[in-house]
C-alpha cells in the first residue's frame, strides 16, 4: 500500500507541475459555469439542475482526456519497463495512478461549489439534493475514469486511447436511453430493464435527484472495480504473450 501511495504522490506531482491539470480544470469549469448560468436566469429557478445536467457530457469528453495518457504514455516512452523493474505489484501502480487522476477530477468538481453557494444566496437552495448531485457526479466520474484507464492500457497511442474511451463511455451512456431500448424486439421485453440498468446516466440522474439507492452505488462500484481489474490483467497478459 505504501508503494501505491508513492506512485500516487508522484503522479499527482506530475499533474500539478504540467499544464494538463490546469487546462483540464479551467476548460471544464468554464463550460460548466457558462452553460449553467446561460439557462439559470432564463428559467429563474433556484436549483443546480442545469449544472448537473451537463456534467455527464463533460465527463464523456473531459475524463478520457485525463485518462488517455495514464498507460499509453508509459508504454510509448518505455518508462513502464523502468516502473515494473521496481519491486511493485501491478495493482499498486494501477491504483496509485487511478487515484491521482481521480483527485484531479474531484478537485475540479469541488471548484464548482462557489456556483452552488452563489445560487443559495439568490434563493432557497435544497442542499440535500445538491449534495446528492455532487456524490452522484463523483461516482459517475470515477466510473468513467476507470473505463478510460483500461482503454489507455490497451494502446500506446494517446489519441486512440481518447477516442476509444469516448466511444465506450458514450455507448454506456445511451444504452439505457429510449433511443436504444426502442430497438429491442418486442419479443424480448425483459431486456429493457437490463439495458436501462446498464445505462450510465440513469443512475446518475437518480442520485442527482437526491435518491440514494444501493443499486446505483453497486452499479458504480462495479463499474469502477471491474475496468481496473481488467487493466491489471492487461498489464499481466503482456508479460506472458
Amino acid at each position: 500500500m505504501g508503494r501505491a501511495w508513492t506512485i500516487y504522490k508522484k503522479e499527482l506531482k506530475s499533474y500539478y507541475e504540467s499544464p494538463i491539470a490546469y487546462i483540464f480544470m479551467v476548460v471544464f469549469l468554464a463550460v460548466a459555469v457558462w452553460v449553467f448560468f446561460r439557462g439559470f436566469f432564463l428559467i429563474g429557478e433556484v436549483s443546480l439542475r442545469g449544472l448537473f445536467g451537463i456534467i455527464p457530457w463533460l465527463c464523456l469528453f473531459f475524463i478520457p482526456a485525463i485518462s488517455m495518457r495514464l498507460w499509453a504514455e508509459e508504454r510509448k516512452t518505455g518508462t513502464n519497463e523502468l516502473l515494473f523493474s521496481l519491486p511493485v505489484e501491478e495493482w499498486e501502480v494501477v491504483l496509485g495512478k487511478y487515484l491521482a487522476a481521480l483527485l484531479v477530477y474531484t478537485v475540479t468538481l469541488l471548484l464548482t461549489l462557489p456556483v452552488a453557494i452563489c445560487v443559495s444566496f439568490l434563493g432557497n437552495l435544497d442542499w440535500g439534493v445538491a449534495i446528492g448531485s455532487y456524490v452522484g457526479a463523483l461516482f459517475l466520474g470515477a466510473a468513467v475514469l476507470s473505463i478510460g484507464t483500461f482503454v489507455s492500457s490497451l494502446t500506446t497511442n494517446q489519441i486512440v486511447a481518447f477516442i476509444l474511451g469516448v466511444i465506450v463511455v458514450a455507448g454506456l451512456m445511451i444504452v439505457g436511453e429510449p433511443i436504444v431500448t426502442m430497438f429491442i424486439p418486442s419479443s424480448l421485453p425483459w431486456l429493457v430493464p437490463y439495458a436501462q440498468y446498464l445505462g450510465l446516466a440513469q443512475h446518475f440522474s437518480s442520485i442527482a435527484r437526491g435518491v440514494l439507492d444501493t443499486r446505483d452505488f453497486i452499479y458504480y462500484l462495479l463499474l469502477i472495480v471491474f475496468p481496473l481489474y481488467l487493466t491489471i490483467n492487461a498489464i499481466r497478459a503482456r508479460k506472458v504473450g
Binding site: 508522484k10 506531482k13 523502468l82 523493474s85
Partner: peptide, 18 residues
Amino acid sequence: VRRQMGYLPEDTPLYDDM
C-alpha cells in the same frame, strides 16, 4: 527478485518531466 536487482532498461526510458 526485483528488490535485489538494479535494472537499466534499453534506451534509458526515464520520466522526462521530473
